[in-house]
Simulated assay, not measured.
Amino acid sequence: MFVRSLSLGVAAAALMVGGASAADLIIPTTPQPIYQAAGFDWEGLYAGARIGGQFVGTSAPGFANQINNTTYGVVGAAVGVNFIPVDPILVGVEVTGDYLWGNNVTSSSEFFANLRVGAVVTDAALVYAIGGVGVSSTNNTSTGVFQLGGGVEFAVTDAVTVRGELVGQGNLNNNGGDFFKAAKATVGVFYHF
């Protein structure tokens, strides 16, 4: 009987010790990663508005039926789409429309289809080159034109960017004279969808 009591006592003690050590068991876990916000997403559709100025030079023949040696105000809009085929290279297609006006000068309008190629320098900064062809209309006369230039764009929120751009412009039917007959500088705000 003593052996049986001793066996039951040892079994009860073993069960109590096992329960106590189960509560102190340390289970290794993997730590949760710290959330790091991704950089600005340059890919996708965007639209925006811009303002600036255009200076028409003194080269003969003039630029797109506009008055030589004249500065125009510019207000316009742009819609485009960007792709990043290989990081950090950005490729995009953009359509722009601008209204030009000046003192005692007939207003005109310009529409361009552009290609953009750039590099995402930092998560929030893009440097790019732009080139396109289009049409400039002044006094009910349209002229085929081109533009080449570049710009820089900065992300200010997770969907809004600010852009500065400078392009040289010329006539498609150059007919002699300077290659670039006008220069346009714009600053714009864009929303990325």
Score class of each variant (00 low, 15 high):
L172Y: 01
L100R: 14
L166F: 08
V93P: 08
V121A: 04
S107D: 15
V135Y: 12
L166D: 00
V133E: 03
N171Q: 04
V105R: 13
E165A: 06
S142M: 07
A159N: 15
V167S: 06
D123F: 07
N171E: 00
R116F: 03
T143A: 05
K181T: 01
T106Y: 11
V152Q: 08
F112N: 11
A183D: 10
G176V: 02
Q147W: 02
V145I: 14
L166H: 03
G149Q: 09
N140M: 01
T161E: 01
E165V: 05
N114E: 07
V121S: 00
W101Q: 09
L148Y: 02
V156D: 06
F146R: 01
S142K: 05
K181P: 10
T122D: 02
G134T: 04
G150Y: 05
S137V: 15
A159D: 15
G150C: 03
N175I: 03
G176I: 07
G144Q: 10
Y128G: 07
A155P: 15
L126D: 09
V162F: 08
V117A: 10
T138L: 01
D123N: 14
E94K: 11
R116K: 15
T141S: 08
Q147T: 05
E165T: 12
S108E: 00
G168P: 09
A183E: 09
V120D: 08
Q169G: 04
F154V: 15
S142P: 14
G164A: 14
Y128N: 08
V152G: 15
N171I: 01
G131K: 11
G168K: 04
Q169S: 02
G144P: 09
G168E: 01
D123C: 10
V162C: 09
I130Y: 01
E94V: 11
L148G: 00
T96E: 13
G97W: 13
E165G: 06
L148F: 04
L148K: 00
G92D: 12
N139T: 11
G97D: 12
N140Y: 03
G170W: 00
L100N: 14
L126A: 06
L148W: 00
A124L: 07
W101T: 13
A119C: 10
V121F: 04
L115F: 09
I130E: 13
W101Y: 15
G151N: 09
V133D: 02
L115P: 08
A125F: 13
L126V: 07
F180W: 11
F154I: 14
G177R: 04
A155C: 11
R163F: 12
Q147A: 07
A129W: 05
L126C: 06
E110Q: 15
L148A: 04
